[in-house]
């Protein structure tokens, strides 16, 4: 039998027997991935992100991933974030799947045309990647190679459409058929915190219409702004059709917050956040406490299915923050070295 899926269903379902083997695809699921299982089971999910190293050393990737063991359901691998060059997102994902992790392959339209992208999508699925996040990408001018040629053959929405065609219609855009389609849980990004505020839900709807199974938001430092957006999304029925993971960040200090606000496109941080950090004795600790509070408040908002915790240069605190927030309840996500019942899915 030429079956690409692990046959030993009972063991694989529990732990993913050989971590590198994809899990069996459950009925009604579009991927083999653990993240889709967690979300479709109705559990509150937590994802985080890994900063791909400036290195060709695979151990460096695994070292960074290990920090999240037992606390997250999936790990985003950024694709040249901020238009800076790092190890490729696809390679990081491949290293992670070999160890059994559930990576989210961030795919931006900045560096590749439709020929390269479709090839990479097939390759990612072949390497066991179960999730993809479709992004337009930052402009090249923002990064360390501003002289590069920006591609932007697609935007995030045409990228979603393309992967959906490959997955659901088993063909390339050209119409040429695929022998085996990529099994990917498709994600997109939303940013309810920047103009045009009134159209952000419309833009979200376009992404859902284009095929997004889940979305991850930009940093939410302003819950009062998130609420009307989520109400709008609920009214439009979007949260029924698409899982919503809200992004939270860990601010290292008031200075760090001001820098982020001024230099990273699309980041909105209200003054009150900066004032609170400035007033704290230990700003780093306060930043983590604020993150924990934000996670708890966001979990209570109707229509939210999970948290995307971005802790750039604060990765070592991810475990503590997730634990203190209590958003996972008693559930412990899968880890390569399982302690007791670390299955990541409600049984």
């Amino acid at each position: 039998m030429n079956n690409p899926v692990n046959d030993d269903v009972s063991v694989a379902e529990a732990f993913g027997a050989n971590p590198g083997d994809p899990l069996p695809q459950l009925p009604g699921h579009v991927s083999h991935g653990r993240l889709e299982r967690v979300l479709r089971a109705g559990d509150f999910a937590v994802t985080t992100e890994i900063a791909p190293p400036d290195s060709a050393d695979p151990d460096e990737v695994l070292k960074r991933a290990m920090l999240f063991d037992g606390y997250v359901d999936a790990i985003n691998s950024t694709d040249g974030s901020g238009a800076n060059c790092h190890m490729s997102s696809l390679a990081v994902c491949a290293i992670l799947t070999r160890a059994g992790y559930s990576p989210i392959y961030q795919l931006s339209c900045r560096d590749r045309n439709r020929i390269a992208i479709q090839g990479d999508v097939l390759g990612a699925s072949a390497l066991g990647v179960g999730n993809v996040l479709c992004l337009t990408g930052d402009d090249v001018g923002a990064g360390d190679h501003p002289e590069a040629k920006p591609v932007f053959d697609f935007d995030s929405i045409s990228l979603l459409q393309t992967i959906k065609i490959m997955r659901d219609e088993s063909r390339f855009l050209s119409g040429r058929p695929l022998d085996f389609q990529p099994k990917l849980f498709m994600g997109a990004s939303i940013n309810p915190f920047v103009p045009p505020i009134d159209n952000r839900a419309d833009q979200f709807k376009k992404k859902v219409d284009a095929g997004a199974d889940y979305v991850q938001s930009q940093y939410c430092f302003d819950i009062q702004m998130l609420k009307p957006f989520m109400n709008c999304a609920l009214d439009m029925g979007l949260t029924e059709r698409c899982f919503v993971l809200i992004g939270v960040g860990v601010l290292g200090s008031a200075r760090n917050a001001k820098w982020l606000r001024a230099n990273v496109p699309g980041v909105h941080i209200p003054d009150s956040v900066i004032v609170r950090l400035e007033g704290a004795k230990d700003q780093q600790k306060e930043g983590r406490a604020m993150c924990v509070e934000a996670m708890q408040k966001i979990k209570d908002i109707k229509g939210v299915h999970g948290i995307h915790l971005m802790a750039y240069r604060q990765e070592k605190w991810v475990g503590e923050i997730v634990r203190n927030s209590g958003v996972l309840g008693t559930r412990q996500p899968w880890a390569p070295e399982p302690v007791e019942t670390t299955i990541g899915v409600a049984s």
Binding site: D138, D139, G141, F152, D155, S156, I190, P195, P196, G266
Partner: peptide, 29 residues
């Protein structure tokens, strides 16, 4: 500047201007 056909992107500045060209209003706004 990103020739987005289904915009806007998530990088629009608080004043409604473009992330890439700060002197230009976001085309998608």
């Amino acid at each position: 500047p990103k020739s987005i056909r289904n915009g806007p992107c998530g990088g629009v500045r608080a004043n409604g201007r473009c992330e890439v060209e700060p002197n230009m209003r976001c085309v998608w706004i």
